[in-house]
Design a binder for these strands. Sequence first.
DNA 1: CCTTTTACCTACTATGTCAATAGGTTAATA
DNA 2: TATTAACCTATTGACATAGTAGGTAAAAGG
Lengths: 139, 139
Amino acid sequence: MVSTRGRYALRVLIDLAERGTEEFVPLKDITKKEGISKKYLESIMTLLSKNNMVEGVHGKGGGYRLNRPAKDYTVGMILRLTEGDLSPVACLAPEAEICQRAEICKTLPMWKGLKKVVNDYLESVTIEDLLNGNVKIPE
Amino acid sequence: MVSTRGRYALRVLIDLAERGTEEFVPLKDITKKEGISKKYLESIMTLLSKNNMVEGVHGKGGGYRLNRPAKDYTVGMILRLTEGDLSPVACLAPEAEICQRAEICKTLPMWKGLKKVVNDYLESVTIEDLLNGNVKIPE
DNA sequence: CCTTTTACCTACTATGTCAATAGGTTAATA
DNA sequence: TATTAACCTATTGACATAGTAGGTAAAAGG
């Protein structure tokens, strides 16, 4: 289950995308529109800022804006940042130590398949798609 | 991330499938093979038993066995039991109250797509597939 | 320079879930 | 009647989530 951290991050990025890539938008505007705790959002934005997803500027006229055009952000990128690696099991995470059972594990191929299916889908959807309602629901 | 409850359930069902659909297998055998806490496994098996996945018989010669042939168990069925509904967000769960934001929510279609992709994949893999190493990794 | 605005930083907390553990009771067989 | 094995009811330690609280740093306007 995706936590509020990831869900809020996506909503904020959609709001920023709506305002273009020039203008700085203060968090106040976004919390007002989305009804999200400002203090909580701050921690999320700092994360996005440190990872070069958004640019933050202090003071009057400041706020946040996207670093790149909205089509360059995939949902997968954002969720990997906020939720950590999107592996269904710990042994498929990048930082995982090698699992003794890997050779004989009957379930491992299925977990690999699931991870691929999830990541492929999330990579196929961008923030621009979300903003424009251009989300392809499979089949 | 799938919890041990779901992962252990799958491993147990694979072990039971290996022993056919007649013989009763005591938990002792399974904990020995899999190195899983017996007390913990008991709680998982009770869940599977109450939901007609396995049959449990008390006393000497007792244990658990599959209720149906292994090909009739999908991974999705098992994980839905052990992990709860496999929705990426709460508003897509069956018991969810209607979300006010649903009409205007820019992310909802993407979550629906993700849920479909995950469920379709997990429905496509059976316990028999896992046992036989017949897992199709997509593309 | 000073006030306002805004991002950014550090610490704390309430709640809940996970992954067991502990100690039993019930049912079936030999 | 003893043994085996499922089943039941708590309890626990560890951890993550979803915030809250109270600040500091930087930029702009007057």
